[in-house]
Design a protein around this nucleic acid. Structure first.
Length: 413
RNA sequence: GUGGGUGUAGCUCAGAUUGGUUAGAGCGCCAGGUUGUGGCCCUGGAGGCCGUGGGUUCAAGUCCCAUUACCCACCCCA
């Protein structure tokens, strides 16, 4: 066992896996660019207060999962547990919303939560976070869901389901909340201890409690859809019909509730059946009140976050990608050939070719084996004989064809 | 924070129930043979304080206690 290991819940992304990460990140940027989004990179740390005000003081994240510390000046600062808070802060601080049209931004990077690690859950994890500000209309909701679908579909992910719900607005949510609380209050004794506590703090969360007892009680509970105000109902109706027009399959789940307090109206989640217990691949929704709560202008907003580790997990289970080897693998057969090989290799690279070199000693047999393993297309062999004639021998691994390459004039190749 | 499982070679894992001399396999690595100079095949080699600490015993990878790490689930969330 090594003396030093990575800290709990923090993981090395090794070269083999990093290729996949790059593929996912590039796909994200490609799709985002098509949808006219720009990148915004907020810092990894913020004042603790920012997260307390945005995420909701009663959530587990703020209560016990944040990496919070005092800096040397005595300020309380926190490693971001999610991206939206920082994005909104940056938007307000730099007046990015000025300009007459919606502000569409995304952020890609690590988040930190002090949780017990398990499958699809780490303490440092990565999210793609996408936000639209200043667009109150239902088409913004639909557009961002389409974007998410395109991103996942183009990565080749299948077996995903898109689930929607609407959490109402300041007009209708309190009414529903009251009705729900009244209903649940009568059955309080049958709820799990957690939910009994939630009843006062965040009663909507009881709807998606996994305890069987709670599910049984919740079954007969009033559903939100009966309480939506006309505006919320119309808004949600357009979201759904817009998605349908594009043939984007989705289902309504009235028990879908967000873990963070700031959501209003449309909420959505993408789930996978292949992830085990942490089945949410991405989740998001509208949060029209948040900007003003943070002391900024009263801007509507919608966004989502996608968990990259979970996407990678799915991709790895789905397709074992073929490694792409270099164009050449250079095997130096004798010490006196080092100089020539060095020059030749750099010349080939200067021409844009991908060249692997193994300067370490070893038998010819093993050099060729390594070339195979590296999945190189061709092997360049340079030894004393070749030096005498001023030629390097190039062997095509697939066709066994041999060609000569002038050592001092590789550009003719 | 609460459960359950697992820590033995670089990797994947046997061995533990029924303690007993030098702890094994496959893959990988190194050397050699075969080959048209590599892939297949054959021979040999290196590589382990059996997670850590204590205990029981003449004797512990194996039994007991503690501890730690990882995994899975609860919880929470993306």
């Amino acid at each position: 066992m090594p003396a030093l290991t990575a800290i709990r819940g923090f993981r090395d992304i090794l070269p083999k896996e990093a290729d996949l990460w790059r593929e996912v990140e590039e796909k994200a940027r490609q799709v985002l660019d098509r949808f006219d989004f720009s990148e915004l990179r907020p810092p990894i740390m913020e004042r603790t207060e920012l997260f307390q005000r945005t995420i909701g003081a009663a959530t587990d994240i703020v209560e016990k999962e944040m990496y919070t510390m005092e800096d040397r000046g005595g300020d309380l600062i926190t490693l971001r547990p999610e991206a939206t808070a920082g994005m909104v802060r940056a938007l307000i601080e730099h007046n990015l919303h000025e300009g007459g049209r919606a502000t569409k931004v995304f952020c890609l990077g690590p988040m930190f939560r002090y949780e017990r690690p398990q499958k699809g859950r780490l303490r440092q994890f990565h999210q793609l976070d996408v936000e639209i500000f200043s667009d109150p209309g239902p088409h913004a909701d639909a557009e961002i869901i389409v974007l998410l679908r395109d991103f996942l579909a183009e990565l080749g992910l299948t077996n995903l389901s898109i689930v929607l719900n609407s959490l109402g607005c300041p007009v209708c949510r309190p009414v529903y909340r009251e009705n729900l609380v009244a209903f649940l209050e009568k059955r309080k004794g049958k709820l799990c201890p957690d939910c009994q506590r939630r009843l006062g703090l965040n009663p909507l969360r009881i709807l998606d409690c996994k305890s069987e007892a709670c599910q049984a009680e919740v079954k007969g509970a009033p559903t939100f859809s009966k309480f939506w105000c006309p505006e919320c109902q119309a808004h949600f109706g357009v979201v759904k019909s817009s998605l349908s027009k594009l043939g984007l399959a989705h289902e309504l789940d009235e028990r879908l509730v967000r873990g963070l307090d700031y959501y209003t109206r449309t909420t959505f989640e993408v789930r996978s059946g292949d992830l085990g217990s942490q089945s949410a691949v991405a989740g998001g929704g509208r949060y029209d009140g948040l900007c003003r709560e943070l002391g900024g202008p009263d801007l509507p907003a919608i966004g989502f976050a996608a968990g990259l580790e979970r996407i990678i997990l799915l991709l790895r289970a789905q397709k074992p990608k073929a490694p792409k080897g270099p164009d050449y693998y250079a095997a130096v057969l004798a010490p006196e050939a080092m100089e020539s090989a060095f020059v030749l290799v750099q010349a080939l690279r200067a021409r844009g070719l991908r060249v692997a070199v193994d300067w370490a000693p070893g038998s010819l047999k093993n050099r060729l084996k390594r070339a195979d393993k590296a999945a190189a297309a061709k092997v360049i062999m340079i030894g004393p004989n070749e030096l005498a004639s001023g030629q390097a021998t190039v062997r095509d691994l697939l066709t066994k064809e041999q060609v000569s390459l002038p050592i001092d004039k590789p550009e003719v190749f």
